[in-house]
Structure formats: C-alpha cells, structure tokens
C-alpha cells in the first residue's frame, strides 16, 4: 500500500514545478503548460484524498470534472494565445503590457 504522503509529495512537486513555470517562463505556451501542471497536481490530490471520502468515487469524479475543465481551459487559452500572437507578433507575456490596442 502506497501511503498518502507519497501522493501528496508528488503533487506538491508538480505544483511547484507548475508554479515555477508560470512565474518564470517567457513563453505563454510554457506558462500554459505550467498551469496544466498545477491543475494536474490538484487532480492528483483529489484522487489521493478520494480514498478517505465517505461517498465512494467522489474524488475520482471531481478529478474527471477538473480534467474536462482543464481541457476546455487549455483550448480557450490556446485560442487566446494564438490571437495574441497574431496581434503582438509575440507570446512573451512580459512584453504584452498594453491593455489597449
């Protein structure tokens, strides 16, 4: 039996990696990947904690729900990045600091 703490450690490392990516990367896609990392860390936690759930399968269900939402979010985010790229000819978020036009 794999103890819970292992799950949590992995998930925390995933989250930190994601967070690092979000805060430091100069590429929007990489940031998006970072976000996905963080979501998946959360999903991992859902699943790991699901064992202690009173209602069976609740954690898994929530994980599925989150995965779907993440997929949708990625689709939207990619679409935005594409548009941003079209507009600014870059996807480096530190250069995109003009909110109007």
């Amino acid at each position: 039996m794999i103890p819970l703490s292992h799950f949590l450690m992995i998930s925390a490392s995933l989250f930190c990696i994601g967070l690092y990516a979000v805060l430091t990367k100069k590429n929007a896609i990489q940031i998006l990947i970072g976000i996905e990392f963080m979501i998946n860390a959360a999903v991992l936690n859902f699943v790991a904690f699901g064992k202690f759930d009173k209602v069976n399968g609740g954690g898994q269900l929530f994980a599925l729900f989150a995965i779907v939402l993440a997929a949708a979010g990625v689709a939207v985010a990619l679409a935005i990045i594409l548009n941003v790229y079209k507009h600014f000819k870059t996807i480096d978020p530190s250069k995109i600091n003009k909110l109007k036009d």
Binding site: V22, P93, S94, N97, K98
Partner: peptide
C-alpha cells in the same frame, strides 16, 4: 508594471 507575472 502591467506584467501579469509580477502581479502573480
């Protein structure tokens, strides 16, 4: 700064 990452 207007930079997202800074805000974050």
């Amino acid at each position: 700064t207007g930079k997202l990452q800074h805000y974050l």
